[in-house]
Simulated scan of single mutants.
Amino acid sequence: MVVRERFEEELSELQNKLIELGGLSAEALTKALVALEALDVDLALEIIEDDKKANMLEEEIDDFAIMLIAKQSPVAIDLRRIIVGIKIANDVERIADYAVNIAKSAIRIGNQPLVKPIEHIKEMHKLTLEMLSLSIEAYGEEDLTKAKRVAELDDQVDALYGQTIRDLLQLNQTKPDFIAQITQLSFVCRYLERAADHTTNIAEHVFYLVKGKRYDLNN
């Protein structure tokens, strides 16, 4: 009984590490939009530097999960919890990487005024952050309703992505002096769209954890 209790504590520790990683990624993503909108190079550089924390924590989670498998030889639901933890850590760390990419775009734009208000990008960003929060909650609570909601929000991000890219392509024709910036803003849209996809991956992992089978929530 004592062994089982210790194992439960270690599984809880794994979960807490993942929640911490989710917080780091959400913070990076939040700062990235601030850096972009304010064209704040110092903040962008801070985001790039802080990404080391997310990378190290993901490695720590992987090592901890492998240790659990080696030490406990888990089966069934316990093994799924550990495997899902590894997969979610990878997706969450990738979201932090996209925040870094947005920061780099802000640096490349430099001090050139934004060619237009970035309201659609801000809405994509808001939805992606909501999806990340929901997906981590869904994992912690093993809540399929929240996991399904993540996939529904992803459809909204995809729609905004398509609209924003079309708007930026039209600007290419009327604002030739801003082509380099428009390209970077297009990249930002893509980074947010991909970050949203990774939150959907997390939701799919939650379904696998609870149901024991894989679901494609993007269709």
Rank of each mutant, 00 (worst) to 15 (best):
V150T: 10
R81F: 08
Y191D: 14
E10V: 02
Q15V: 14
K116E: 04
T145S: 10
N218K: 12
K87F: 06
K146H: 06
R81Q: 15
A151D: 02
E60Y: 05
Q72I: 04
A28Q: 09
L36H: 00
Q72N: 11
H120R: 14
K53H: 04
L45G: 03
E130M: 02
K53P: 00
H125A: 01
N101L: 08
R81Y: 10
I61K: 00
K17C: 06
E193W: 11
I77F: 05
L168H: 03
K148N: 15
T128W: 02
Q72S: 08
Q173D: 08
I61G: 05
R4K: 14
M56R: 14
I95C: 08
E20K: 12
H125D: 02
K71M: 12
P176F: 03
T183A: 00
M131S: 00
V150G: 07
Y98L: 14
Q156D: 15
E46Q: 07
V92M: 03
G162P: 07
Q72M: 04
P117G: 10
Q112W: 09
A138E: 08
L132W: 02
Q156W: 14
V92E: 02
A76V: 07
E10I: 11
A35H: 07
K17D: 06
L18W: 01
I83S: 09
A99V: 03
I86Y: 04
K71G: 14
